[in-house]
Simulated assay, not measured.
Amino acid sequence: MFCYLQRFSVMASKTHRLHQIAETSLPGSLKKARTMTVDSNMKGGFEKYAKYLNDLNDKRERVVKASRDITINSKKVIFQVHRISKYNREEVLEKAEKDLAAVTDQFMSRLVKELHGTDFWKLRRAYSPGVQEYVEAATLCEFCTTGTLLKLAEINTRLLPLSDPSLEPLQINILDYFLGLADLTGELMRLAIGRISDGELEYAETICKFVRDIYRELTLVVPHMDENSEMKKKMEIMLQSVVKIENGIVLPQSHSSTIQYAER
């Protein structure tokens, strides 16, 4: 027991001496914490960049809102076109054209103004859905009115008056145009089925040929696009639209042939 206490006393005295050494040497050995001095120019650069990001986020929110309004009102144009029949064709298309002009003047113009003076390609994902819906509505009206395809250059020409001549104009890019055409084929399929129900087989056949031509042309282009392109996901849906129209046309004709054969 005595040996243990003696050994403990020696250890305690050594510990006490270590503490004394540490207390006398520690203050002199400690180094001052390093502080990073920020150059005023660098600080100003950081502040400008932070402001740029905040402004860009605010603009993105406004662009998303404008795109949403374009989508909603372009859908109204499409719904108006679907009211078409052989009895009200001119009336329905006239109303649809007026509604489309209102979408251009009120909502597309707001989008163009929001994107003025910016690298608008950076915000493409924010406004792309609205632009695609606008392309879909515009091309649907054009086909029902003239029976032809509204080209990308023609759409962009319509948008030019909305832009400030001193700034780079907003132009719809080829991908958003193709995506709009892909959605157009679905609307034309619904239109064709409606015309078949009303007995307008000839008009349905015209729609079928038009949709088939769009699909054939895009099959030559889409394989060369990026593997993750949205277009590749829509090609199968486009093909389904073509098949549905073709089946819709064939069935009434085969039914009519059966009736004629039975009457004989």
Rank of each mutant, 00 (worst) to 15 (best):
K31L: 01
L30C: 13
K43Y: 03
H16L: 10
P27R: 01
F46L: 14
K14S: 12
R34I: 01
G45Y: 05
A22M: 14
E47W: 00
L26H: 09
S29P: 09
V38P: 04
L30K: 10
L30N: 11
K32E: 11
H19K: 05
K48W: 00
M42E: 04
H16F: 07
F46Q: 08
A33Q: 07
G44E: 11
K48T: 09
D39Y: 01
F46K: 04
M42Y: 08
D39K: 01
P27T: 06
L30R: 09
S25V: 15
G28E: 15
G45V: 02
N41C: 01
R34G: 04
L26E: 06
S29D: 15
D39I: 03
G45Q: 07
T35W: 10
L26S: 10
M36E: 13
K32D: 09
S13R: 00
G45D: 02
A50C: 11
L26F: 04
S29N: 15
M42R: 02
T37R: 11
T15G: 14
S25E: 14
D39F: 00
F46P: 03
L26I: 05
F46W: 12
D39P: 00
G44P: 12
D39V: 03
H16W: 06
F46S: 08
G28C: 14
R17S: 15
A33E: 10
R17N: 13
S25I: 10
V38H: 02
K14V: 13
F46D: 05
